[in-house]
Amino acid sequence: MRTLNLLAATAFATALSVSSAFALTVGFSQIGSESGWRAAETSVTKLEAQKRGIDLKFADAQQKQENQIKAVRSFIAQGVDAILIAPVVATGWDAVLKEAKEAEIPVILLDRTVDAPEDLYLTAVTSDTVFEGKVAGDWLVKEVGDKPCNIVELQGTTGSSPAINRKKGFDEAIAGHDNLKIIRSQTGDFTRTKGKEVMESFIKAEGGGKNICALYAHNDDMAVGAIQAIKEAGLKPGKDILVVSVDAVPDIFQAFVAGEANATVELTPNMAGPAFDALDAYLKDKKEPAKWIQTESKLYTPADDPQKVYDEKKGLGY
């Protein structure tokens, strides 16, 4: 039945020479809605599906892998044309991915990858978190030029892969520029409260903040908290202390508008767009995509009309 549907759909699409795969049914197993970014990813995925006329079946796993596996099995039983999974953990996927493969349903991983043989899924669409750190570091290197610059760093949750990778990428970018030096680095757990508290201690420990030239925060929320700490210490964030962070959530654009932050690297919530494009090419032309599709890590600065970006992003459920 599924193959018939698919054939019919493909034939129809080819006949009309429409660029998008028409009347596709795609199942999407989302992790949950633990963060604003996750909520935005869900709404962007729904928007992208709507734009292409794809019938999206959405399942929220509430942070549980067993719910995701159940959802994938039910997608297989319903005979969908493709399955998107944003996997909550990396392991334990082999069995259910094999079932999907036997049913000849292509699986695309979003945002995170899994520890399973590569032939069990079509492709993975993720961001390169090392590269995000590098983009942030490159911006700062360019911004300060030859001037000496002491950097304080707010790390993400200790041991988490985005924290490790965003640190690594940033370190790579500033390596070889002896005028840039990370003088303090501490975890802010990716939260505003801790970002603010840790920044307060950085300022106290570094001569009232006079030794600090720039702040690098592994996410925008910590940067937003730190900006408040900088202001309460009587300094001007964005001028006395440069602020660069990662994620591009709406609130950092408000800080741009107020002149209190200087740059952010976007972790795009649009993982589904490239995934649907790859799926389209695969179903229509049997074109196997690469096993890894890297999303763009776009750098935003206050020069990018922050008010407009804020208004666009605000509606996405961040």
Partner: peptide
């Protein structure tokens, strides 16, 4: 907590 933050140890030790 404040002392640990001021000390500047790597966060793994907190």
């Amino acid at each position: 907590n404040t002392g640990i933050l001021l000390a500047g140890f790597p966060p793994e030790f907190n």
